[in-house]
Amino acid sequence: MPQHWIDLTALWLTVRLAAVTTLILLVLGTLISAWIVFTRSRLRPIVEAVCALPLLLPPTVLGFYLLVLLGPQTAPGRLLTHIVGHPLAFTFWGLVIGSVIYSLPFAVQPLVAGFQSVDPALREQAALLGAGRIRILRELLLPLSKRSVLTAITLVFAHTVGEFGVVLMVGGDIPGATRTLSIAIYDQVQDFSYAQANHTALFLLIVAALALIAAYWRSPHRELTHV
């Protein structure tokens, strides 16, 4: 048995990445989902499609374009480099940007479904009583969609913990900076450290299984959205 049964540096980095991504997506996903539910704009299907794109796109495609976008060859990349003082590719914050985009559908889809399940008559009554969209979101849609919010948090966190392709493309494999647990498994297998790889893989398997059980766990009649 090695000194540590799992790469603690990679574990800490993975947890930090998943926590920061979840926090950002909780805010961003809520705002995008509320816009999708409220809007009458013709752009809605396009925005929904863009938000769902990471579900179908190979992670390497997303990673490649992010790498190009964050690098010095493009205007946004040069602007970001100018703002933070160094290129974002192959850094922790580069990974965060990649993870936020890659996990976006895991936040938006449950939140949109939750907001849409709130009886439209309740939204109308709130509007009649003088509430604007922000207040309807804060005082009606979010409290009545608690389950969907918890599902979004769980799925985004677990998905970020387990991502590989985008992380490898955008972050490379720098210990302490961009080497997450899923990358560590790859390295361990390359080094024939199968026991160590097994520990890491088992840990990720348990995290994913627990997250899904939490997402599917519901006691009957928990969430009342109708009167």
């Binding site: 309740l122 009554q125 009649l128 009606l140 109708h226 009167v227």
Partner: peptide, 14 residues
């Protein structure tokens, strides 16, 4: 400045 009561009460359940 108009109140509206629909057929179903539509009270906020929470």
């Amino acid at each position: 400045n108009i109140g509206f009561v629909p057929q179903r009460a539509a009270l906020f359940p929470h």
